[in-house]
Structures are given as structure tokens and as C-alpha cells.
Design a protein around this nucleic acid. Structure first.
Lengths: 127, 127
DNA sequence: ATAAATCTTAAAGTTCACTTTAAGTCAAGG
DNA sequence: CCTTGACTTAAAGTGAACTTTAAGATTTAT
């Protein structure tokens, strides 16, 4: 069992964000000790890591909410959850492809700077 | 020369966003016709496309502002502009690497769903 | 001639994902 | 005992990037 502070150290997620995720229904299973303080078990930690991966790849909070609701509803939602993950996988792949395309444009710009520099060196040689 | 509507059609950027970019100093060179309406020339269009690539790769507005200011200041800022682009290239590469790392986690989750399905099929056969 | 479409400005509003604040509870240490 | 530190809540605040609104000018079509 881990305190909220330990979880912030293990995950890099701030305490306020952890509470926010819980309020939003992304972490509904977190237990409390006799004083009402949060105690995160291993499953909670797994969820935090999974939510972090989903957020880092751009999944909106509402969609993660939906996923957690499906998980809580039971095994009959497995097909829908898998479909969500497959769609999200495609979204990430598209995002990566877009980044590569735009990276090409940045590289083109960088190549132009190299040409500019070459021209300047050429000018130097001629003088 | 293109009207703002034509530019929205050519770039997919909304008219309000184009005006917003201009107000923020990202497109300082846009001319006006005799009625005060914006007329985008080819250079403006190139800038719109370039800004779009920078935005799509996560460069903040303030940093694009800075880049445009350097451009307007003259050739003596070329080294700094090139350095900005090199840094941004690194940022994009890191972003892509992060996406791949998190995509692995999604794929792991999908593999778990496949295992679940296999187990269910196995159970069916046994019945 | 008048109505519709397209533009203009400045300012206010929206969305998303947190983050901060304020006020309070509780256990441990000096 | 009482202060310090870590936690609690609900609500308000923040920042970034637009987007919408409101009011007005002008062009175009009927």
C-alpha cells in the first residue's frame, strides 16, 4: 500500500492530478485508511501507469472515463474495450505519421539553411 | 493574391485563426486591398504552411513569434533561427520516440485481450 | 433598391487539463 | 502542549489556443 506522496514519486504525476483523476472517475478503486487518506495498491498503480500512457498519446479524459466505466461494467464489455484500444492504436500511428511528415518540412528548412551557409562560404572563397 | 476564404480552403486553417495568427505577429506581412480586406500572396501562403507544420509538431505560439521576429530582424539572425529549428527537430524526434514507447504499452494491452479471447475459445472447445 | 454574402475590428467566451487556494483534520516529534 | 507536515475537500484560478459574438462596412445578386 502506497501513500499519495509515494505514488507521485513513483509515477511523476502530481498529487493534485491523482486526486483530479479520481474525481473524474479514472481511478475509482482507490481505498482509504482509517483517517480517510488514500492508499494505492498495485492495481491502482497499474491503472495510473496505463492512464499516463493513454494521456501521453493524446487520449482525452472523457474517453478514458468511458474505458474505465466499461471495465467496471464487467467482462461483456471486453469487445468494446478492445475496439477502443485498436482505434487508439490507429490514432497514435496516424499521429506518428503526421509528425514524420512535418519533420520532413523542418528538415527541408534546415537544408535551406545549409545551402545559405554554403553560399556564404563560396562568397568568402571568391574574395 | 488570395482572399482569406481562399486561404482557408487551401490550408484548412479557419479565417479566425488566420486573423489570430496575424494579430499575434505570426503573419506580419499580409497586405490589404483598397477596402481593407486581406490579400495573401504566395509568400504569405508559404508562411501559413510553415506555421501549420510548426504548430502540428507542438511548437508554441510564442516561439513561432520569436522565430518570425528573428526573420524580420535580418540575415544576422540566421544562426539563431537555424539553432531553433535544430532544437525543434530534436523535440519532434523525442516526441515520436515517446509515442512509440507508449504505443508499445497499448500493444501489450491488445495482446492481453487476444489472450483473453484465446482462453474463451479454448473453454468453448472443452464444453 | 434592397437583401445576402463577405469582409472588418475588438472583446468576450470556450475548452481542456490541470493547478492553486482556502479551510480544516490528524499523527508524530520536541 | 503545540507546532509541523501531510493529508483532506470543494471551489476557484490558470494557460494555451483558438472561437464566437457583436457591430459595422462594402460588394454582389435579384
Amino acid at each position: 500500500m502506497n501513500s499519495i506522496k509515494e505514488v507521485t514519486q513513483m509515477t511523476g504525476i502530481s498529487a493534485s492530478t491523482l486526486r483530479y483523476y479520481e474525481n473524474e472517475g479514472l481511478l475509482p478503486h482507490v481505498k482509504r485508511d482509517e483517517n480517510g487518506k488514500r492508499q494505492y495498491d498495485d492495481e491502482d498503480l497499474e491503472w495510473v501507469h496505463f492512464i499516463t500512457a493513454l494521456r501521453a498519446t493524446g487520449m482525452p479524459i472523457v474517453q478514458i472515463q468511458r474505458y474505465v466505466q466499461l471495465y467496471q461494467a464487467g467482462d461483456f464489455t471486453i469487445a468494446e474495450r478492445k475496439a477502443m484500444m485498436l482505434q487508439h492504436k490507429k490514432d497514435i500511428e496516424n499521429k506518428i505519421a503526421d509528425l514524420y511528415r512535418n519533420l520532413d518540412k523542418i528538415n527541408y528548412k534546415l537544408a535551406l539553411y545549409d545551402v545559405l551557409e554554403a553560399q556564404r562560404n563560396h562568397a568568402d572563397i571568391k574574395i
